[in-house]
Design a protein around this nucleic acid. Sequence first.
DNA 1: TACCTTCGTTCCGTTTACGGAACGAAGGCT
DNA 2: AGCCTTCGTTCCGTAAACGGAACGAAGGTA
Lengths: 192, 192
Amino acid sequence: MDSSPARRPALDTDPRDVGRRVRALREARGLSLSELARRAGVGKATLSGLENGTRNPTLETLWAVTAQLGVPMTAILVEAGPGAPEPAAVPVMHGTAVAATLLEVFDDGDVTYELYRLDLPAGTEQVSPAHHAGVTEHLTVFAGTLRAGPLDAPLTGGPGDHLSWRSDVPHGYAAPGPDDVRATLLIRYPRP
Amino acid sequence: MDSSPARRPALDTDPRDVGRRVRALREARGLSLSELARRAGVGKATLSGLENGTRNPTLETLWAVTAQLGVPMTAILVEAGPGAPEPAAVPVMHGTAVAATLLEVFDDGDVTYELYRLDLPAGTEQVSPAHHAGVTEHLTVFAGTLRAGPLDAPLTGGPGDHLSWRSDVPHGYAAPGPDDVRATLLIRYPRP
DNA sequence: TACCTTCGTTCCGTTTACGGAACGAAGGCT
DNA sequence: AGCCTTCGTTCCGTAAACGGAACGAAGGTA
């Protein structure tokens, strides 16, 4: 697009930042570049160039990668900060019972945080496999009664309560009470 | 990317939808295709192809166009909700030191929750007047060290910590450490 | 040691997104 | 009528994003 020699940014947000976020999200999930490229159906050269900011990815590429990471494209395009647009509400992951909406992603270099809003219809239950070592989850209950945490030592909390656990073991989320549960979930991924 | 002969979509979201939104935004501003292309510094062929969904735009193109339309890229990548035609400016309160971005509002009839993201540059301090009786604040720290709560009994927490207090008294937020503080703040307003 | 796998990067030929130019269509003006 | 401007699309040569293959490095196993 820009045929001038200096190759000036001309972009509000540097593609290097986009690449940095993609890499953070990938590593937070313990995926290798090769494996993410294979799963997303893109070339390793494409993903490598995207993460290093040396390419100008197409919409199709961005979609393939973010879909495989399980995050809305917003997560890699907007810098989380004041004045940033409201994050897209895209229900994702975990699966059937729990609707988890990614609100924000914070990439601080050494640590990545993901903030979700959870909705559990009354009576539902959901199990999530272990993350890798060091990952912790921090849950704030808005409404209903939530039982969550490691499967062998679940925690219980009501509105206003805050639950935390290490999620390097199989864990789950359940709404045992008569009311729907709403909560925010903060997942902390330290750099491996 | 797709070397199969049929050139099937292979996209979760159709580029035609993206183009349709761009065209809607452009026409809502009374801009011609030629003029928007000129202002955005892209070719008319590029913009025409983008709006008609016959191209696979690059990140740089998307940025140039959305920046000129004055909308976040989110506006053309996600389907806008029924009651959200314009991405209204993100509400920011408090003011000087603390940047509070409203993430979500839950209105449950008897109770209202507001979820904010807080940004405190290192060294800043902010005081907030008392709210109504029964209002509570619940804070989860992401980064930095935060001292917050009632002025006469402040609490302190680091990354991952959770602080709660009743905010029917004057209270404050401070970042006494060397690092910027980022946190989520949940305010619970019971029906008076 | 040798051998194998997987890592991320780089090379390379193909595909395609890019901007400029040319196009026909549709007004506006004298 | 003629002439001019602007509209959005299409053509076309160039630049670059793409996937596949080859690469060296690092770690595991025998």
